[in-house]
């Protein structure tokens, strides 16, 4: 708030319009020095007076913006929707927790099985099935086929 002892300043139209958008269209709500300068301008400048009137109209329109109706039961309806939303994450967390537990259990089981079950001679068996007898033995995989 500008001190009331200050002399009213002269005000250009641009300054007036800046103040109009800053303080609104009711001069009584302006800081005193600006108000006095604005009053002087409005008395001598028809365009400034028109701008002031327009700003006041805008203020009235802003003050009269419609309110949304609140139907009977609106609060109950929204409360129910909120409660549903609050319940859903709990189920989600439960599912996530279950999934994490299942994954951890399967990893542990795999590790335990992999480390505790005795190895068979499956390695050699498998090799015999899929690899040719590199020693030139009588493996089924090495027939008497010719050479290239």
């Amino acid at each position: 708030m500008t001190g009331s002892t200050r002399q009213p300043l002269s005000m250009s139209r641009t300054e007036f319009e800046d103040s109009l958008d800053r303080h609104g269209g009711t001069l009584a709500q302006w800081p005193e020095a600006e108000r006095r300068a604005a009053q002087s301008l409005v008395l001598s400048d028809r365009d400034a007076a028109a701008a002031l009137a327009l700003a006041a109209r805008l203020d009235r329109a802003l003050g009269a913006l419609p309110a949304a109706p609140v139907e009977l039961g609106y609060a109950t309806r929204i409360a129910a929707r909120v409660a549903d939303r609050m319940a859903a994450p709990r189920l989600g967390r439960l599912a996530a927790a279950f999934g994490t537990t299942a994954l951890a259990a399967s990893l542990v089981a795999g590790f335990v099985l992999g480390t505790t079950l005795a190895p068979t001679d499956d390695a050699s068996t498998l090799a015999a099935l899929v690899l040719p007898d590199i020693d030139g033995g009588s493996s089924a995989g090495t027939s008497s086929g010719g050479t290239l």
Partner: peptide, 22 residues
């Protein structure tokens, strides 16, 4: 307490709805 929630919505829901609808 869901009743408290409903009361908060009753107090503020209309105002917030107006603001967002605007």
């Amino acid at each position: 307490d869901e009743r408290a929630l409903a009361e908060l919505i009753r107090r503020h829901g209309g105002r917030l709805r107006t603001l967002v609808l605007r």
